[in-house]
Computed example of a mutant assay.
Amino acid sequence: MNIGERFKQLRTEKRMSMRELADSLDVSHAQVSKVEAGKITPSVDFLNKAADYFNVSISYFFMEKIELMDVSGLTVDGIKISDEEKESMIQLVRKRRG
């Protein structure tokens, strides 16, 4: 997942339009659109604003895969959880924080 995809994911999880987010970050709609589409690389200032707004670290935008903790041995009802279930858990936490 690239920077634009991560940015879009955060925006859509909050159910915001590009315009709403642009207004919140005090940037142009075009800039948000171009970042999400991967047409431009966001500035450090842009990333700082986005990280503060979404309550994530700047490094979040550059991570290959989000790892909250090692849950490889986690079981539910004696059955090891799958990668799909791990991802569902991450999404649930994000929604509750949203």
Rank of each mutant, 00 (worst) to 15 (best):
S88D: 13
G78P: 00
G38C: 02
K34L: 13
D45A: 15
I40T: 14
E64W: 09
S17H: 05
V44L: 11
E20Q: 14
T41G: 07
M1Y: 06
V27L: 07
G4H: 10
K65D: 12
I3A: 03
I81T: 08
E36Q: 03
G38V: 03
L10N: 09
R6E: 02
N55L: 06
R11A: 08
Q9P: 01
P42K: 09
T12E: 15
L25I: 07
E5S: 05
M63R: 15
S57I: 06
K34W: 13
Y53G: 01
R94P: 00
D45R: 09
E84Y: 08
G98Q: 14
G78Y: 00
V71Y: 11
I3K: 04
S82A: 08
R97C: 11
R94V: 04
Q31M: 15
M18L: 13
V93S: 10
I3F: 01
F62Q: 04
R97S: 12
S82E: 09
K14Q: 14
G38Y: 03
K86A: 05
D23P: 01
E13G: 09
F61R: 03
L21C: 00
G4Y: 04
K49R: 09
E36L: 01
M89N: 06
G4N: 05
N48S: 14
L21G: 04
S28G: 11
F46S: 02
G78E: 12
I40D: 09
Q91M: 09
A22R: 05
L68M: 10
R97L: 14
P42F: 05
L74R: 12
F7N: 07
Y53Q: 00
R6A: 08
A22Y: 03
S24R: 13
A30V: 08
F61V: 02
E85I: 06
A51W: 03
L21A: 06
D45F: 11
K14T: 04
A50C: 01
D26Q: 08
G98M: 10
K34R: 11
R94A: 10
L47R: 01
M69L: 13
K65Q: 12
L25Q: 02
K34P: 00
S33H: 14
G73Y: 00
E85R: 13
S24T: 06
V76E: 01
S43D: 03
S24L: 11
S88M: 15
K65V: 03
L10A: 05
E5L: 05
M63G: 02
A37K: 15
M69D: 12
I3L: 07
I79R: 12
K49T: 02
R11N: 05
M89E: 05
L74I: 09
Y53V: 06
R96M: 15
Q9H: 12
Q91R: 11
